[in-house]
């Protein structure tokens, strides 16, 4: 699995520290009053089944390009300071962090909206796939229509 990172995007197997990421968004940044972060984690249940782990696959190269496009669109729509997106790949267990989106802006409205926009588009455009291990066996997750609808609302 190829690990790759730019200042704004990191695809990694390793865990990340929320505190460290917030520090990176805030340090030497006196102009932004708002910092909004989202962290996605592995849940213990999905569609009634007990989940034991998730394995995340991605398309190296396209993933970074796709996330860069989403961030670029967000920056065109809202007045943003710093943006950071981290997505983990490989095998993850209950409670593990999967994804981080952090956004700063002068005021909260832009940061709240842009953070949600980035997550909503990541869900439907970035080439990641989850395979779930449950007590009933392994299966690839199906995409949800509700995620498509949510992204389409922007």
């Amino acid at each position: 699995m190829i690990e790759n990172s730019t200042p704004e995007i990191s695809i990694q197997t390793a865990d990340f520290s929320l505190a460290d990421e917030v520090t990176l968004l805030e340090q030497d940044n006196a102009i932004d009053g708002a910092v909004v972060t989202f962290t996605g984690r592995v849940r213990n249940k999905n569609e009634g089944k007990n989940v034991t782990s998730l394995t995340l696959e991605h398309y190296p190269g396209m993933t970074e390009k796709s996330l860069a496009k989403i961030i670029c669109t967000a920056k065109e729509r809202w007045r943003l300071g710093r943006v950071k997106v981290i997505h983990r790949v490989g095998e993850l267990f209950i409670g593990d962090q999967i994804v981080f989106v952090g956004v700063t802006s002068k005021h909260r409205q832009d940061a709240f909206a842009a953070n949600e926009f980035i997550m909503d588009y990541l869900k439907v455009q970035a080439p990641f796939w989850k395979k779930e291990s449950t007590e009933q066996g392994n299966n690839w997750l199906d995409a949800k229509v509700s995620d498509e609808n949510k992204a389409a609302k922007w």
Binding site: F128, L141, D142
Partner: peptide, 10 residues
């Protein structure tokens, strides 16, 4: 050229 199922990250 890549082919793949609908994406399920996040």
């Amino acid at each position: 050229i890549a082919f793949f199922p609908p994406v399920t990250g996040g």
